[in-house]
Simulated assay, not measured.
Amino acid sequence: MKSQKVESTVILRCKKGKTAEFKNAVIKLVKETEKELGCELFRIFENKDNSEEFVLWEIFKNEEALEAHMQAAHTKECFALGLFEPISFIRHIEVK
Rank of each mutant, 00 (worst) to 15 (best):
M1W: 15
Q4K: 10
L12K: 04
C14S: 00
K15E: 05
K16D: 08
K16A: 08
G17W: 00
G17R: 02
A20I: 00
A20G: 00
F22W: 09
F22Q: 08
I27E: 11
K28A: 07
L29E: 01
V30N: 02
T33E: 03
E34K: 14
K35R: 14
C39N: 00
C39G: 00
L41I: 13
F42N: 02
I44S: 01
I44L: 01
D49N: 02
N50I: 00
E52R: 02
E53Q: 05
F54M: 07
F54Y: 12
V55M: 10
L56G: 04
E58D: 11
E58I: 11
I59M: 01
K61E: 13
N62S: 06
E63K: 04
E64R: 12
M70R: 14
M70N: 13
A72K: 08
K76R: 12
K76A: 12
K76S: 05
K76E: 15
C78Y: 09
C78A: 10
F79D: 14
A80G: 04
A80L: 02
L81E: 03
L81K: 11
G82K: 06
G82Q: 04
L83M: 11
E85S: 11
S88Q: 04
S88K: 07
I90E: 09
I93Y: 15
E94H: 05
V95L: 09
